[in-house]
Design a protein around this nucleic acid. Sequence first.
RNA 1: GCCCUCAUCGUCUAGCGGCCCAGGACACCGCCCUUUCAAGGCGGCAGCGCGGGUUCGAAUCCCGUUGGGGGCACCA
Length: 523
Amino acid sequence: MTDSTEPATPTPAASAAPSPTGRRNATPVAAAAAVRVRFCPSPTGVPHVGLARTALFNWAFARHHHGSLVFRIEDTDIARDSEESYQMLVDVLGWLGLSWDEGPDIGGPHAPYRQSQRMDIYADVAARLHRAGHAYECFCTPEELDQRREAARTAGQPSGYDGHCRNLTHADRDRARAQGREPVLRFRMPGHTITFTDLVRGELSFAPEHVPDYVLVRANAHPLYTLVNPVDDALMGITHVLRGEDLLSSTPRQIALHAALADIGVGVGAPIAFGHLPYVMGEGNRKLSKRDPESNLLLYRERGFLPEGLLNYLALLGWSIAEDRDIFDMSEMVEAFDIARVNPNPARFDLRKCEAINAAHLRQLDPGDFANRLVPHLQAARLLADPVPAEDAALLAAAAPLVQQRMVTLGEAVGMLGFLFRAETDFRVESEAIESLGTEDGRVLDAAEATLEELGDFSAAGVQAALRAALVDSLGLKPKLAFGPVRIAVTGRRVSPPLFESIELLGRERTLARIRALRAALG
RNA sequence: GCCCUCAUCGUCUAGCGGCCCAGGACACCGCCCUUUCAAGGCGGCAGCGCGGGUUCGAAUCCCGUUGGGGGCACCA
């Protein structure tokens, strides 16, 4: 049996060499051994940003070390898991571009990758652990457990399982069964302190009295996470486990179980290194919960966040690429990622910064790429047909560069470009924009109409020269007051793409019609 | 109650004993540019929780304390 007090590093020798950029000089990542990490969500509810961050760090770690990422579905909780949730997971990970090497959809040498399809494996391993003495039947009822836990707590003692059924005789078990008790299978923890080197936190130590024996299999024979997660990690040859810090205190139990699994010949028996990533917090001092709207990954896609923008922001939650830089792409992250440089303290999710990072990526997009990414959002708002008609595609190609610098998410294109793609019968001036107008603005519209009617050169430059002459020079208006009413008439909003380019794209007829319509509405 | 863990501007972070009377980013506030809104440029505000050590020297190491978070399930 492997001695669990040894640090859980694949090759202790590897930690002797300081990592070039590592904050701790122990970066227990063996260069020679192939890195295998996994991402193993349970498909409950809507995909969460914390989950994406964990997936991202695992992905970056695997890619940095030229290792493998295993995607595994932990669907052993029949009551909460759903197929719909599983689909959303696959879908949103695909959108983010976090690719995996083995998984339920693509298979791999350790298939199946859905735990609900591996129940026979767990039953077999459980039986072997039992036979080898690493686990025992526990007949305590939940009520008895509660009672003793409460008593221990009031006495100031550790309140975990007290080992009541650890050494039952045959006769004891027969008696319990005769009473109608159904046993759970409980893991027998070794009696020594468990110490390991966490990849992000350094050396951690747990005394035996605080890591009590725990349940592996329910009385109804249903295997628990406590069993299936380590069993699959062992069987699938996982070398590094990067997960949320909520799992930190269950790590000694898993290390002990891994040792027992090695003892009975399950898996290759290589120790696994653990790294616990800090929480992603929401408002206040709470962990970001499913209730917080900003936790819902699907919403980011709907709003038109770029995968590269969201990922960039998520990477910043606990990690940084350099002292004076925070905009980077995923190839740069893969290149630079070092688990030892992950910051152990919890990070608060800041939607404003997430938006700012996204906007930076939006601006960096190639104009053609940017226009293409706008299409689904314009279609969802019914501004574009599917497929996109050629003339609309041309219009979009011309209009997109006008708004690329002034948007935060792709979804904003609906408001910014709606005036170009909406039929005249559907065009409306926003009420807030109308309210900002005064009666004297009618004069401005009259002058604009007269000028544009006469104008031969309807290019942006031509329109600008003509309107400036008519409104600013002749009427003596400040540019802001001169062009404001025209902007509202033409685009329907107070905020729009640059006015003269917008007019050029809209064309003479539609421009004049809209100016007349607003003029009439003003009375 | 017991155990574990975390601690630098409002927020995310850089910092690994002298390059730091602490650097960057978001947010915020000015100014410039300007047809709106952005973008961009320039400038500003703002932080090492507290107390002891160690050291010639501490944001950095140690101890304590305070505060936050997590765990102590037949959930994952």
